[in-house]
Design a protein around this nucleic acid. Sequence first.
DNA 1: GTGAAAGCGCTAACAT
DNA 2: ATGTTAGCGCTTTCAC
Lengths: 348, 348
Amino acid sequence: MRANNRGQSTDRITIIDIGKEAGVSYATVSRVINNKGNVNPDARERVLRAMTQLGYVANTQARSLAGGRSYVVGLLVQDLGTGYTGEIIRGMDDELAKAQYNLMLFTTHRRKVKESLFVQTLTQGTADGLLLILPRNAEAYLETLRRRKFPYVLVDHQGIDELGPSVGASNWQGGYDATSYLIGLGHKRIGFITGTPELGCAVRRLDGYKAALHDHGLPLDPNLIREGDFYQPTGYKGGVDLLNLPDRPTAIFASNDMMAFGVMEAVREQGLSIPKDMSIIGFDDIPMAANVHPRLTTVRQPLEQMGRVATTMLLDLINNPDQQPEKIELPTRLIVGETCCAPAQARK
Amino acid sequence: MRANNRGQSTDRITIIDIGKEAGVSYATVSRVINNKGNVNPDARERVLRAMTQLGYVANTQARSLAGGRSYVVGLLVQDLGTGYTGEIIRGMDDELAKAQYNLMLFTTHRRKVKESLFVQTLTQGTADGLLLILPRNAEAYLETLRRRKFPYVLVDHQGIDELGPSVGASNWQGGYDATSYLIGLGHKRIGFITGTPELGCAVRRLDGYKAALHDHGLPLDPNLIREGDFYQPTGYKGGVDLLNLPDRPTAIFASNDMMAFGVMEAVREQGLSIPKDMSIIGFDDIPMAANVHPRLTTVRQPLEQMGRVATTMLLDLINNPDQQPEKIELPTRLIVGETCCAPAQARK
DNA sequence: GTGAAAGCGCTAACAT
DNA sequence: ATGTTAGCGCTTTCAC
């Protein structure tokens, strides 16, 4: 048992050991491991046996240094707080495990400039590919990634321009469906709280809202639209503002669940009841949406599946670098909870 | 511009380039990078300048392969769903970034046996240390880690025996405080929903509950204690059971916030009001606790700080392998929300 | 089909 | 104080 320079014991089994045990050169062992052709079935068998027998574990550092893969995928997220990201990661994680890949996590929260630095590190061989969940200001480093032909997939980033392979949900349709649902219940004045306006998904949800109003012959009142940023406090604030309107809406559609929770808070603070006095609808269907009372009516994004699909896309891209970048949009679905009902006047 | 075997462009700047540019051997460059002594200030200056000028980024694979550090820390978690983990990671992440470290994420959810496999990978040079949040059945691989003298820190794992360096919160005190608070409000029958019984933190919270009852001369009714697992559904179920008791409690203390949400659900389903008919208290103070209505009264664990402290401990351990393993317990604090009040009979 | 050998970028002796 | 050199474990030509 040897010890490395930090005192850790490192009695590693290398391909040289395997080679000796199997009676072949270690080049052959490498061929077996990487499934390259031209290996005698007998030899392959012996190598495989030696590997399990000696408990061989590949050293990924050496592998990637020698020009192979690192078997690491980078993941860039802003935040882990809301459960939204957690759901997506669950899907990624599962898919990655199947392919024997590991995940390197980068969080950008609070940091401003460092984002491009991590791209440097990552593309220097640390990772074989990169997953980006809802990135902001991605343009800067996406350009670098593209130039280096470094595989990446965007999750839930639907910019206006061509930013490369991406997986998202049908945000427009979700916004349209939720609004139509409220209109169907009899609501005529429907408040809307936007997400971060720079984010494609936020814009699409708003567009869906507008389109639904238009298709049902309802006027678009700019006063009913408040800007939010996908976090709870702006939902609360938007809710307060809308409630204070002389001609207040009978329903509020928040661009995500966290903001919907904020709206719920605002409504209750005024002593109003949900949904009797105010119908509320969210977007995402994070786990918590089922745990609040009354259960939030919302538009479900298939978050876990989005993570799953993004990951398979990325692994595909790593294996076949010269592919056409795909853009996949997964369907959203209205989840009817208990926060919506017909407006008061319609019930009279 | 060269291209590697996967077609990516890899015009890397190595320490050799830096050496040439600065007019020194690349060994000197290495010395500068790693802050080893014996470098002429002039030479150091030239090297540093060359590095920024050429935009040098170290190749961590090569570094760790050559016996240095990988500048990666592994993180083992079960789940990212509840926000609890997210908070801790936020603290870790911040601290890690300061030390230029990266984070490799391993999730054990759903997988049964693979846990020991990741230890193999990790200790083969992929990471310099390991952080474990609330691990279950950790004994198996902790033994391996110890034998290999691989640095690790446990977060929120307070087993009965000596499992090594760890960071936790004062769970006993928190349980004691919450229970005392309820007793102070006038409650005499207080239901309790446990966490996963194998987890040290769950046992401590229960012990704190029992001690508070005892110290205030209240009897311990085993019927009022229900087993949970820290997830919402068992909170709901425990709540239903306690509500159906002929002599139902006037308050319920759930071992964490997610289960407290479940209790709230159960109470409401019976048409009862919170806190008038039933006081509820949780544990953790995850962000969501402030977003439910009424705001959950709970025991705050300093989650972010726990992550922070665990990380500095680990980095310390990486730097000085022969340290004594520390055990740090951070204080919890009662957060008074709106889910507790005096019981009905006391108010009469 | 298989082995020998070069080299990925770096650290850490060992020289000087 | 600095240069030289030997690997770390692996992939990948290039021979045979």
